[in-house]
Amino acid sequence: MNDSKHEQMLIWVIRLGAFLCFAGWTWVHLYWEGPYGILLWQDSTYELATRFGISWDEFVGSGAEDGLVQKWLARIGWLYLICTILTLTARKGSWLQIAGLLGGSGLLAVLSYAKYVSAQRQLPMFVEHGGQMLMPVVLVLALVFGVRHRATIVTAMIAFVMTFAGHGCYALNIWPTPATFYAMTCVSLHVEYETAAWLIRVAGVLDVIVCIGIFIPLLRRSSAMYAMLWGFATAIARPVAGMSWSLYYWGTDQFLHEAVLRAPHFLIPLYLFLVWDKPQTTSQLSDREIL
């Protein structure tokens, strides 16, 4: 494969990651509901609203009518839809679209913060969303500077580390392992709790190893390969464990987006695996392309 095709492939891997991430969250917002309730039902949020002259009924609704909260919660989904489209249309130089993608990254950061607050401020909950939050940023950097640019690769590595470090902290029970980890493992692999717990601890150790491994030239490709497979497995575990022929739409509407929005968890490692695919000649390396 020549360099041009290789770079095109890399950019499409990144686009696909950002596209699927935004598409999954668009589904959540438009079909289900964004996870912002925890942020909005706060005295401080209401106080902020009152500074803008917004009454209580206008803010949360009268009971019979929706308030600003409900209306804007529904509208956020359309912003996600726009970002989903931008992942496919944005090009180098289309600054408005690029700004939109960066705004999308901000939306994902707010969403991740809401999930962090609702998880009783467990740090790994925010950290493990790093891959999703930074996926649009990686795309922007790839478009603006190139897929092999240091900034693009470093940002992807940060996203990688955040995703797997956050996951590893939970898997190693440094913060309490979420019950769904055990549940998905038991149901997907048809194993008992004890086996599932052991497997999750092993996975946690491997999460740590790959976070370190991507900084070691000899290990970085194998680390990225493992992370890609593991990230895909953890994403697909949701529909695999939850979907059933007996459910409406086989449970697709309940579970499939859970895998789709986690696409950065395996596509960022894939991108890193591919970008480190072949040794660079000295002439190909510039001082900005060091990794």
């Binding site: 740090l123 440094i174 976070c211 370190i212 900084f215």
Partner: peptide, 24 residues
């Protein structure tokens, strides 16, 4: 240098919480 910083960053994230008992 950049690699070293990133490595420290990643390890820092991993262990910023301390062990499970300390977390409790």
């Amino acid at each position: 240098k950049l690699q070293a910083c990133l490595a420290i960053f990643s390890i820092g994230i991993l262990f910023s919480g301390g062990p499970a008992e300390a977390q409790q």
